[in-house]
Amino acid sequence: MSAPTSRAPFGARLAGAMAEHGPLCVGIDPHASLLTSWGLADDVDGLRRFSLTVLEAVAGRVAAVKPQAAFFERHGSRGVAVLEEVVAAGRESGTLVIVDAKRGDIGSTMGAYADAFLRDGSPLAGDALTVSPYLGFGSLQPAVELAAATGRGLFVLCLTSNPEGGEVQHARTVGDDGATVAATMAAHAARLNAGATPLGSVGLVVGATVGAAAHATGTDLAAVNGPLLAPGVGAQGAGAAELAAVFGSARGQVLASSSRGVLQAGPDVARLRDAARRAGDEAAAALG
């Protein structure tokens, strides 16, 4: 495990960034179709130009950026090297970087994932990592411990917008309380965030288009006391009414994630910047 760091906890740093720049996180999702629409080749050079152009447009202007690791990994080791460049460029710009890798495993394997994405000195370590808890929340312990030691954050999958998500997330756990899986994940995050101000560093991923799922599953989002990463704001259909239905009194904890709604404005930096500004204004209004 890394030695304790002097870095402020992720939750505090994110709260500061949201207060300064608003509640928007811009996804860096270099889909092959987006590369094509930008006039770029679907190769490592296109990947680099796309990703660094997005950063040029939004760094220092939004609360966070979120590179999706899969779109870099599909280009092999050279693509992963571009992801390392993006993480480093985000760090240099002062913009928080959430690496969207959704890692989850057990034992030493989870420890290795934590080492790759959360250890000081690792070229893949941003400010936070998305993780999957579906081998049991306890399987995330190596990531929980290393994130706490290095001042980084985690976003735990909780309520996702894909139709099949409910098969697991809405299921009842085995035990005396019979709580849903989603509610159990939220309760674990709340325990880890207890007493943290202004936000804890263990957040949840909650789709902005999941409707009444939090209420239906008994998931107390406000009690999490941590950030709620919300894909689906804007281009995917979630506005003020949808956000109120999903998050209720927890709206102040929401970091709205927008990818397509911003990225389709490229490759012109000024147009990307304008799209991010509009998306940020819309998210702030919807969450107000």
Rank of each mutant, 00 (worst) to 15 (best):
A15Q: 03
V144A: 08
A245L: 14
T95Y: 01
D220N: 15
A214I: 00
P30S: 14
L255E: 02
E85D: 15
Y134G: 06
L199A: 13
G288H: 13
S132E: 04
V131N: 04
T95W: 05
I28V: 12
F247R: 00
G239W: 13
L83G: 13
R103A: 08
P163T: 04
D281W: 03
R78E: 15
G239T: 07
A143Y: 11
R13N: 13
S257A: 14
G200Y: 06
L229E: 00
L154D: 13
N225R: 15
F72R: 03
C25D: 09
A69D: 06
G280Q: 01
S77M: 11
G60R: 00
R61P: 04
A238I: 00
P142N: 07
D42M: 05
A279H: 14
P30V: 12
F155Y: 14
G175M: 03
P133W: 13
G261T: 02
L55E: 00
A19I: 04
E167T: 09
V168I: 15
T197I: 03
A222C: 11
S259M: 02
T197G: 09
V262F: 09
S122M: 07
S132L: 09
T36I: 02
G252Y: 04
A32Y: 03
V62W: 04
R119H: 10
G165C: 02
A256T: 12
D268R: 06
F117G: 02
H21F: 10
G252A: 01
P123K: 13
A214W: 06
A244W: 07
A112I: 08
D281T: 10
S77C: 00
G166D: 02
D45N: 14
D105T: 09
L263K: 02
E84Y: 04
D45T: 15
G261E: 01
L255M: 10
A187E: 13
G121N: 04
G27T: 02
T209V: 09
A64R: 03
W38N: 00
A240I: 08
L146T: 14
A190T: 04
F10Y: 15
T5I: 10
D127C: 13
A230K: 10
L159T: 10
P227H: 05
A32I: 12
A143V: 01
G94A: 08
L140C: 09
G239L: 04
V80H: 04
L192C: 07
P9C: 11
D105Y: 07
L118A: 02
G166N: 10
T219V: 05
S51E: 02
D45E: 15
G266S: 09
A265Y: 10
L287E: 02
R251L: 04
I106E: 08
D115K: 09
G11C: 05
L146K: 12
G126T: 00
Y113E: 00
S2T: 14
G261R: 01
L157T: 06
V54M: 00
G90Y: 03
G288M: 01
A265C: 08
L24C: 07
L34M: 14
G136R: 07
V144G: 07
A149H: 12
K102W: 12
S51Y: 12
Q169A: 08
G200P: 03
R74A: 15
A245K: 11
F247P: 05
L96K: 06
A149Y: 08
A223S: 15
A89I: 05
G76A: 03
A286N: 13
